[in-house]
Design a protein around this nucleic acid. Structure first.
Length: 341
DNA sequence: AACGCGTGGGT
DNA sequence: TACCCAAGCGT
Protein backbone atom coordinates (compact mmCIF):
# COMPACT_ATOMS: atom_id res chain seq x y z
CA UNK A 1 0.00 0.00 0.00
CA UNK A 2 2.78 2.43 0.87
CA UNK A 3 4.59 1.76 -2.41
CA UNK A 4 1.34 2.29 -4.28
CA UNK A 5 0.70 5.48 -2.30
CA UNK A 6 4.15 6.89 -3.11
CA UNK A 7 3.26 6.68 -6.79
CA UNK A 8 -0.48 7.34 -6.84
CA UNK A 9 -1.15 9.65 -3.90
CA UNK A 10 -3.54 12.50 -4.58
CA UNK A 11 -2.27 16.03 -4.22
CA UNK A 12 -4.63 17.82 -1.82
CA UNK A 13 -4.32 21.24 -0.17
CA UNK A 14 -4.19 19.85 3.36
CA UNK A 15 -1.56 17.25 2.60
CA UNK A 16 2.14 17.81 3.15
CA UNK A 17 4.56 17.04 0.35
CA UNK A 18 5.87 13.47 0.37
CA UNK A 19 8.06 12.97 3.42
CA UNK A 20 7.23 16.37 4.91
CA UNK A 21 5.33 16.96 8.16
CA UNK A 22 1.73 18.08 7.83
CA UNK A 23 0.40 21.09 9.75
CA UNK A 24 -1.83 19.65 12.55
CA UNK A 25 -4.28 22.55 12.26
CA UNK A 26 -4.79 21.94 8.56
CA UNK A 27 -5.03 18.18 9.01
CA UNK A 28 -7.62 18.57 11.75
CA UNK A 29 -9.65 21.15 9.84
CA UNK A 30 -9.65 19.04 6.69
CA UNK A 31 -10.67 15.91 8.58
CA UNK A 32 -13.62 17.69 10.15
CA UNK A 33 -14.68 19.26 6.85
CA UNK A 34 -14.40 15.87 5.17
CA UNK A 35 -16.74 14.16 7.62
CA UNK A 36 -19.54 12.90 5.38
CA UNK A 37 -18.51 15.49 2.80
CA UNK A 38 -16.77 15.05 -0.54
CA UNK A 39 -13.28 16.26 -1.45
CA UNK A 40 -14.80 18.31 -4.27
CA UNK A 41 -17.09 20.17 -1.87
CA UNK A 42 -14.40 20.65 0.76
CA UNK A 43 -11.47 21.87 -1.33
CA UNK A 44 -12.61 25.46 -2.08
CA UNK A 45 -14.04 25.85 1.43
CA UNK A 46 -10.78 24.67 2.98
CA UNK A 47 -8.77 27.20 0.97
CA UNK A 48 -11.07 30.09 1.89
CA UNK A 49 -11.19 29.05 5.54
CA UNK A 50 -7.43 28.74 5.98
CA UNK A 51 -6.89 32.09 4.28
CA UNK A 52 -9.17 33.68 6.87
CA UNK A 53 -8.30 31.60 9.94
CA UNK A 54 -4.84 30.09 9.37
CA UNK A 55 -4.24 28.70 12.86
CA UNK A 56 -5.78 27.78 16.21
CA UNK A 57 -5.27 31.21 17.71
CA UNK A 58 -7.12 33.05 14.96
CA UNK A 59 -9.98 30.56 14.99
CA UNK A 60 -10.26 30.64 18.78
CA UNK A 61 -10.59 34.43 18.56
CA UNK A 62 -13.04 34.42 15.66
CA UNK A 63 -16.52 35.85 15.88
CA UNK A 64 -19.03 33.06 16.28
CA UNK A 65 -21.49 34.36 13.69
CA UNK A 66 -18.68 34.75 11.15
CA UNK A 67 -17.64 31.15 11.65
CA UNK A 68 -21.16 29.81 11.27
CA UNK A 69 -21.69 31.92 8.14
CA UNK A 70 -18.42 30.65 6.71
CA UNK A 71 -19.66 27.10 7.16
CA UNK A 72 -23.01 27.79 5.48
CA UNK A 73 -23.76 25.27 2.75
CA UNK A 74 -21.41 22.59 4.06
CA UNK A 75 -24.03 20.94 6.28
CA UNK A 76 -23.81 19.25 9.66
CA UNK A 77 -23.41 22.60 11.33
CA UNK A 78 -22.46 21.22 14.74
CA UNK A 79 -19.07 20.69 13.14
CA UNK A 80 -18.48 24.45 12.90
CA UNK A 81 -19.56 25.01 16.48
CA UNK A 82 -17.25 22.21 17.64
CA UNK A 83 -14.34 23.60 15.62
CA UNK A 84 -14.48 26.85 17.56
CA UNK A 85 -14.94 25.05 20.87
CA UNK A 86 -11.97 22.80 20.16
CA UNK A 87 -9.78 25.74 19.09
CA UNK A 88 -10.67 27.55 22.31
CA UNK A 89 -9.85 24.41 24.31
CA UNK A 90 -6.49 24.07 22.57
CA UNK A 91 -5.65 27.66 23.48
CA UNK A 92 -7.02 27.48 27.03
CA UNK A 93 -6.03 23.97 28.07
CA UNK A 94 -3.06 23.07 25.88
CA UNK A 95 -1.21 26.36 25.66
CA UNK A 96 -2.18 26.80 22.02
CA UNK A 97 -0.45 23.58 21.01
CA UNK A 98 -2.56 20.82 19.50
CA UNK A 99 -2.24 17.68 21.66
CA UNK A 100 -0.52 14.84 19.86
CA UNK A 101 -1.98 11.69 21.36
CA UNK A 102 -5.08 9.93 20.19
CA UNK A 103 -6.62 9.99 23.68
CA UNK A 104 -6.13 13.73 24.15
CA UNK A 105 -7.45 14.42 20.66
CA UNK A 106 -10.46 12.22 21.29
CA UNK A 107 -11.38 14.42 24.26
CA UNK A 108 -11.77 17.54 22.12
CA UNK A 109 -15.26 18.40 20.86
CA UNK A 110 -15.98 17.12 17.38
CA UNK A 111 -13.17 14.57 17.35
CA UNK A 112 -14.58 11.07 17.47
CA UNK A 113 -12.83 7.74 17.05
CA UNK A 114 -12.12 8.27 13.38
CA UNK A 115 -10.90 11.86 13.44
CA UNK A 116 -8.72 11.42 16.54
CA UNK A 117 -7.01 8.42 14.97
CA UNK A 118 -6.59 10.17 11.62
CA UNK A 119 -5.03 13.29 13.14
CA UNK A 120 -2.76 11.27 15.45
CA UNK A 121 -1.50 9.25 12.50
CA UNK A 122 -1.35 11.89 9.77
CA UNK A 123 -0.23 14.93 11.72
CA UNK A 124 1.76 13.28 14.53
CA UNK A 125 3.13 10.13 12.96
CA UNK A 126 1.61 7.84 15.55
CA UNK A 127 0.38 4.37 14.90
CA UNK A 128 -3.40 4.57 15.00
CA UNK A 129 -6.08 2.39 13.45
CA UNK A 130 -7.96 4.72 11.13
CA UNK A 131 -11.34 3.40 10.04
CA UNK A 132 -13.66 5.48 7.90
CA UNK A 133 -16.18 4.41 5.25
CA UNK A 134 -13.37 3.89 2.70
CA UNK A 135 -11.39 1.66 5.03
CA UNK A 136 -14.55 -0.24 5.94
CA UNK A 137 -15.18 -0.94 2.30
CA UNK A 138 -11.62 -1.91 1.43
CA UNK A 139 -11.21 -4.10 4.49
CA UNK A 140 -14.61 -5.76 4.14
CA UNK A 141 -13.63 -6.77 0.61
CA UNK A 142 -10.01 -7.65 1.37
CA UNK A 143 -11.08 -10.04 4.14
CA UNK A 144 -14.45 -10.94 2.61
CA UNK A 145 -16.33 -9.87 5.73
CA UNK A 146 -19.97 -10.47 4.85
CA UNK A 147 -21.58 -9.56 8.17
CA UNK A 148 -23.88 -6.59 7.53
CA UNK A 149 -22.94 -3.15 8.82
CA UNK A 150 -22.97 -1.87 11.49
CA UNK A 151 -22.59 -5.25 13.20
CA UNK A 152 -19.42 -5.88 11.19
CA UNK A 153 -17.61 -2.85 12.62
CA UNK A 154 -15.66 -4.65 15.39
CA UNK A 155 -14.43 -7.33 12.96
CA UNK A 156 -13.51 -4.72 10.37
CA UNK A 157 -11.61 -2.70 12.91
CA UNK A 158 -9.75 -5.78 14.16
CA UNK A 159 -8.82 -6.68 10.59
CA UNK A 160 -7.67 -3.12 9.88
CA UNK A 161 -5.51 -3.29 13.00
CA UNK A 162 -3.70 -6.34 11.63
CA UNK A 163 -2.64 -4.54 8.44
CA UNK A 164 -1.80 -1.12 9.92
CA UNK A 165 1.99 -0.60 9.93
CA UNK A 166 3.98 0.77 12.87
CA UNK A 167 5.71 3.26 10.61
CA UNK A 168 3.93 5.65 8.26
CA UNK A 169 0.51 4.82 9.70
CA UNK A 170 -0.71 8.20 8.45
CA UNK A 171 0.38 7.50 4.90
CA UNK A 172 -1.17 4.06 5.18
CA UNK A 173 -4.49 5.58 6.23
CA UNK A 174 -4.41 8.07 3.38
CA UNK A 175 -3.43 5.28 0.98
CA UNK A 176 -6.46 3.27 2.04
CA UNK A 177 -8.67 6.31 1.53
CA UNK A 178 -7.21 7.09 -1.87
CA UNK A 179 -7.68 3.46 -2.83
CA UNK A 180 -11.26 3.47 -1.60
CA UNK A 181 -11.98 6.73 -3.38
CA UNK A 182 -10.46 5.91 -6.76
CA UNK A 183 -10.12 2.13 -7.11
CA UNK A 184 -12.11 0.22 -4.52
CA UNK A 185 -15.23 2.26 -5.19
CA UNK A 186 -18.73 1.48 -4.02
CA UNK A 187 -20.39 0.65 -7.31
CA UNK A 188 -17.88 -0.69 -9.81
CA UNK A 189 -14.45 -1.28 -8.26
CA UNK A 190 -11.50 -1.13 -10.66
CA UNK A 191 -9.96 -4.36 -9.43
CA UNK A 192 -7.58 -4.64 -12.38
CA UNK A 193 -5.79 -1.52 -11.12
CA UNK A 194 -5.77 -2.54 -7.47
CA UNK A 195 -2.49 -3.23 -5.67
CA UNK A 196 -4.35 -5.51 -3.23
CA UNK A 197 -6.03 -7.65 -5.87
CA UNK A 198 -3.89 -10.76 -5.32
CA UNK A 199 -4.54 -10.64 -1.57
CA UNK A 200 -8.23 -9.75 -1.84
CA UNK A 201 -10.65 -12.46 -0.71
CA UNK A 202 -13.54 -10.42 -2.05
CA UNK A 203 -11.99 -10.36 -5.52
CA UNK A 204 -11.30 -14.07 -5.30
CA UNK A 205 -14.93 -14.61 -4.38
CA UNK A 206 -16.02 -12.98 -7.62
CA UNK A 207 -18.31 -10.21 -6.35
CA UNK A 208 -16.37 -7.65 -4.31
CA UNK A 209 -18.88 -4.95 -5.27
CA UNK A 210 -21.44 -6.65 -3.02
CA UNK A 211 -19.32 -5.92 0.05
CA UNK A 212 -19.73 -4.51 2.59
CA UNK A 213 -23.33 -5.57 3.16
CA UNK A 214 -25.56 -2.75 4.37
CA UNK A 215 -29.05 -2.67 5.78
CA UNK A 216 -31.67 -1.09 3.54
CA UNK A 217 -32.83 2.39 4.40
CA UNK A 218 -36.34 3.16 5.51
CA UNK A 219 -38.69 5.55 3.76
CA UNK A 220 -38.02 9.21 4.48
CA UNK A 221 -41.01 11.01 5.97
CA UNK A 222 -42.44 13.96 4.06
CA UNK A 223 -43.02 17.10 6.08
CA UNK A 224 -44.51 20.47 5.29
CA UNK A 225 -43.72 23.91 6.56
CA UNK A 226 -43.86 27.64 5.98
CA UNK A 227 -40.98 30.03 5.44
CA UNK A 228 -41.76 33.69 6.18
CA UNK A 229 -40.39 36.49 4.03
CA UNK A 230 -40.89 39.81 5.77
CA UNK A 231 -39.79 42.82 3.75
CA UNK A 232 -39.00 46.13 5.47
CA UNK A 233 -38.09 48.52 2.66
CA UNK A 234 -35.62 46.29 0.89
CA UNK A 235 -34.47 44.43 3.98
CA UNK A 236 -35.65 40.98 5.01
CA UNK A 237 -36.03 39.67 8.53
CA UNK A 238 -33.55 36.98 9.54
CA UNK A 239 -33.45 35.01 12.77
CA UNK A 240 -30.76 33.10 14.57
CA UNK A 241 -31.80 29.50 15.10
CA UNK A 242 -31.36 27.85 18.49
CA UNK A 243 -27.89 26.42 19.05
CA UNK A 244 -29.09 22.85 19.18
CA UNK A 245 -31.09 20.84 16.70
CA UNK A 246 -31.49 21.17 12.96
CA UNK A 247 -29.40 23.97 11.43
CA UNK A 248 -28.46 24.92 14.99
CA UNK A 249 -26.94 28.35 15.49
CA UNK A 250 -27.41 29.33 11.88
CA UNK A 251 -28.82 32.58 10.50
CA UNK A 252 -32.12 31.73 8.84
CA UNK A 253 -35.44 32.91 7.50
CA UNK A 254 -38.23 32.57 10.08
CA UNK A 255 -40.15 29.32 9.82
CA UNK A 256 -43.31 27.82 11.16
CA UNK A 257 -43.48 24.32 12.64
CA UNK A 258 -42.72 21.35 10.42
CA UNK A 259 -45.84 19.29 10.25
CA UNK A 260 -47.37 16.31 8.49
CA UNK A 261 -50.15 18.17 6.68
CA UNK A 262 -50.47 21.43 4.77
CA UNK A 263 -49.03 24.30 6.81
CA UNK A 264 -50.37 27.76 7.55
CA UNK A 265 -49.24 31.03 9.10
CA UNK A 266 -48.50 29.65 12.56
CA UNK A 267 -45.44 31.20 14.22
CA UNK A 268 -45.39 34.16 11.83
CA UNK A 269 -42.67 36.56 13.00
CA UNK A 270 -44.96 39.61 12.98
CA UNK A 271 -48.54 40.77 12.64
CA UNK A 272 -48.83 41.51 8.96
CA UNK A 273 -50.92 40.91 5.85
CA UNK A 274 -49.39 37.54 5.03
CA UNK A 275 -50.12 35.89 1.73
CA UNK A 276 -48.86 32.55 0.40
CA UNK A 277 -46.95 32.59 -2.83
CA UNK A 278 -48.12 30.29 -5.58
CA UNK A 279 -44.89 28.29 -5.55
CA UNK A 280 -43.31 25.64 -3.38
CA UNK A 281 -39.76 24.83 -2.47
CA UNK A 282 -38.71 21.28 -1.73
CA UNK A 283 -35.61 20.29 0.14
CA UNK A 284 -34.28 16.97 1.30
CA UNK A 285 -32.54 16.54 4.63
CA UNK A 286 -30.86 13.35 5.73
CA UNK A 287 -33.85 12.06 7.60
CA UNK A 288 -36.90 13.77 6.07
CA UNK A 289 -38.05 15.64 2.99
CA UNK A 290 -39.48 19.10 3.33
CA UNK A 291 -42.15 20.74 1.19
CA UNK A 292 -42.14 24.46 1.89
CA UNK A 293 -44.79 27.09 1.36
CA UNK A 294 -43.60 30.69 1.13
CA UNK A 295 -45.45 33.40 3.03
CA UNK A 296 -44.63 37.01 2.20
CA UNK A 297 -45.57 40.35 3.75
CA UNK A 298 -44.30 43.89 4.10
CA UNK A 299 -43.99 46.08 7.18
CA UNK A 300 -43.28 49.72 7.84
CA UNK A 301 -39.86 51.12 8.54
CA UNK A 302 -40.15 51.22 12.31
CA UNK A 303 -40.65 47.47 12.70
CA UNK A 304 -38.13 46.50 15.37
CA UNK A 305 -35.66 43.67 15.53
CA UNK A 306 -34.86 41.71 18.66
CA UNK A 307 -31.92 39.97 20.23
CA UNK A 308 -32.24 36.98 17.94
CA UNK A 309 -33.40 38.79 14.76
CA UNK A 310 -31.85 41.21 12.31
CA UNK A 311 -32.82 42.99 9.10
CA UNK A 312 -30.62 42.07 6.18
CA UNK A 313 -30.34 43.89 2.79
CA UNK A 314 -32.10 41.69 0.26
CA UNK A 315 -29.63 42.46 -2.49
CA UNK A 316 -26.81 41.23 -0.27
CA UNK A 317 -28.50 38.13 1.07
CA UNK A 318 -25.73 35.98 -0.37
CA UNK A 319 -23.43 37.36 2.34
CA UNK A 320 -25.71 36.29 5.20
CA UNK A 321 -24.42 32.73 5.34
CA UNK A 322 -27.78 31.02 5.03
CA UNK A 323 -28.05 27.22 5.01
CA UNK A 324 -28.93 25.88 1.58
CA UNK A 325 -32.61 25.34 2.31
CA UNK A 326 -33.05 29.07 3.04
CA UNK A 327 -30.84 30.21 0.19
CA UNK A 328 -33.06 28.13 -2.07
CA UNK A 329 -36.22 29.66 -0.59
CA UNK A 330 -34.84 33.20 -0.89
CA UNK A 331 -34.02 32.64 -4.55
CA UNK A 332 -37.56 31.38 -5.16
CA UNK A 333 -39.17 34.35 -3.41
CA UNK A 334 -37.04 36.88 -5.26
CA UNK A 335 -37.88 35.16 -8.55
CA UNK A 336 -41.60 35.24 -7.79
CA UNK A 337 -41.49 38.90 -6.83
CA UNK A 338 -39.55 39.78 -9.97
CA UNK A 339 -42.08 37.97 -12.16
CA UNK A 340 -44.97 39.73 -10.44
CA UNK A 341 -43.39 43.15 -10.98
C1' DA B 1 -27.51 1.70 20.44
C1' DA B 2 -30.35 3.96 17.38
C1' DC B 3 -31.21 8.19 15.80
C1' DG B 4 -30.71 13.23 14.63
C1' DC B 5 -27.95 15.85 11.94
C1' DG B 6 -27.01 18.71 5.50
C1' DT B 7 -25.58 18.87 1.27
C1' DG B 8 -23.99 18.13 -3.53
C1' DG B 9 -22.59 14.74 -6.74
C1' DG B 10 -22.97 10.27 -9.03
C1' DT B 11 -25.69 6.75 -11.44
C1' DT C 1 -36.07 10.33 -11.45
C1' DA C 2 -35.05 8.64 -7.20
C1' DC C 3 -32.29 6.87 -5.13
C1' DC C 4 -27.39 6.19 -2.93
C1' DC C 5 -23.51 7.92 -1.03
C1' DA C 6 -19.18 10.80 1.24
C1' DA C 7 -12.52 11.24 5.37
C1' DG C 8 -18.76 10.72 11.48
C1' DC C 9 -20.12 12.74 15.88
C1' DG C 10 -23.00 13.39 19.94
C1' DT C 11 -26.55 11.90 22.67
Amino acid sequence: MLDWYDVHRRVLPWRAAAGATADPYRVWLSEVMLQQTTVAAVTPRFLAWTARWPDFASLAAADDADVMAAWAGLGYYARARNLVAAAKAVVAEHGGVFPGTEAELRALPGLGAYTAAAVAAIAFGQRAVVVDANVERVVARLFAIATPLPAARPAIRAAADTITPDLRAGDFAQAMMDLGSGICTTRAPKCLLCPLRDACAGFAGGAPELLPVKAKKGVKPQRHGTIFWLDRGGQVLLVRRPDTGLLGGMRALPTGPWVDAAPGFEDAPAQADWRMLDIRVSHGFTHFDLDLSLAVAEVEAHQPSTESTEWWPIDRLDTAGLPTVFAKAALAVKGAIRRAA
